[in-house]
Design a protein around this nucleic acid. Structure first.
Lengths: 251, 251
DNA sequence: TAGCTTTGTGTCAATTTTACACTTTCCAAA
DNA sequence: TTTGGAAAGTGTAAAATTGACACAAAGCTA
């Protein structure tokens, strides 16, 4: 029974994994949730890696990504989108990576294709969980990340690029903010994703014209400057907007 | 030696395949190159499928996709871009698909993740090749495709969608045209990719402003109407343009 | 040479984008 | 209580872009 259960629910596929680029926003800059693999005995090499794991043969890719996310953060119903597949045969070339795999995989030498996802989580709701593959997890500002395990740096860049494109077409940025937020926070969010300054007035005008924000009759409290009005994201308007479509190229 | 060679060059990974959505343009509409699997003994089910194959353990994904493309068309240096990974555990649910796999795979029951690519080929240069996996290959207009093997219809839609997005941001459409082409052909190409009519004059204005076309001092010959000027794609201008960036959303 | 077919062209109104600076409001420190 | 610091919030004018729209020119064919 136990055996049978195991067979049905949990046959790991040694050749396919998922990795998650979990984006957060600390109201200052875009950050990513990385796992710390701890000290590597053989010496140096990056300690940080994207959370990820092999997939089970009975789950589809989206499920696997959600599972990894859940194991790490306990979060459900999170914005999740596939970035693509990565799989150079020589993607495991660092000694430290090889070593680590030996400690966590049944077939550490297997050729693995990984399917990358990115997800957007409201950092405020995030509560770290003990997970099978991560001793520790930390939020790290994207711009400060210079090296990662395996080809994870490449994956991170691809995910960031995809996010960049996507945010120009759909207002998914709201997934990174608390329920109530200020226009300045939203502004800062766009700047940190697009990596360039945006004119304050023009930004506000454009966002407001989308008509997906509800202004609350509520102000920030306790800030040492003029308090900002708080806004809420308006789901209905957004749904309508995505139905009627809103690209923005000229054709 | 033979054995060794085989071992080094050609260990198939039973769990990962690539599939290619090969787009062409017959100067009227967008088409896709599909392989005809021939009569399926067990009766009905789609005969047509995307070209694809398992990957070798020593090649990366892009190489695998290029290989499939080459085997089928003999073409090299073709525009190729990843669409993403697809891999529902139950993606093989049609009896005809199961049957076909038995005839071509060593492990027909294995759980397979497929990585989809789309490529853009100038149909004029295409010369069909005998290939290991295709008895026949045919160009089929995208709009006429109602069913395909496995989850290939889903893949096709995703590829088309990606192409749609991409063509709004980069002028990759030229990869589908002969070296010399008319503005009307380009116009028609955009319409068939974007699935909507575009105003002739506005289209021409916009394209010309991109400044990536060289007008040739040459006209169409033998057409029963006013002959069109021929244009060439200007690689240098394009390179420059991609360097300086050319997105087109407002931010 | 008359007729068919597609090419190629310009303008105007409406909308969108860009650049730009000062007042308001709250807190904290003097 | 007054003052200074800090970010919020707001409008306009010029430039660029978009969208709608119609007719003459050029080549072929019958």
């Amino acid at each position: 029974m136990q055996h049978n259960q195991k067979k049905i629910n949990s046959e790991l596929n040694p050749n396919v994994s998922v990795d998650c680029v979990i984006f957060g926003f600390d109201l200052e800059q875009l950050t990513v949730l990385l796992i710390d693999r701890g000290e590597i005995s053989s010496g140096f090499g990056p300690r940080l890696a994207l959370p990820g794991n092999l997939i089970y043969d009975n789950e589809n890719l989206d499920m696997a990504a959600n599972r990894v996310l859940d194991e790490l953060s306990g979060l459900h119903d999170i914005y999740l989108e596939q970035v693509g597949a990565f799989g150079d045969p020589d993607r495991i070339h660092k000694e430290s990576d090889r070593e680590w795999l030996k400690s966590i995989r049944a077939e550490p030498e297997a050729r693995v294709i990984t399917v990358a996802y990115f997800s957007l989580v409201p950092m405020q709701q995030y509560k770290p969980q003990a997970s099978s593959f991560a001793k520790n997890a930390d939020w790290v500002p994207v711009n400060e990340i210079k090296e990662l395990a395996f080809d994870h740096l490449e994956i991170l860049h691809a995910a960031k690029e995809k996010l960049k494109q996507k945010i120009k077409i759909q207002p998914i940025g709201f997934n990174l903010l608390p329920r109530k937020f200020t226009l300045s926070q939203l502004h800062r969010l766009y700047e940190s994703i697009l990596d360039k300054p945006l004119d304050k007035r023009n930004f506000r005008r454009k966002i407001q014209k989308l008509d997906i924000l509800s202004s609350l009759r509520e102000k920030q409290r306790g800030v040492p400057h003029k308090p900002s009005l708080l806004y809420e994201f308006n789901e209905e308007k957004y749904q309508e907007l995505t139905r009627t479509g809103f690209d923005n190229f000229g054709f």
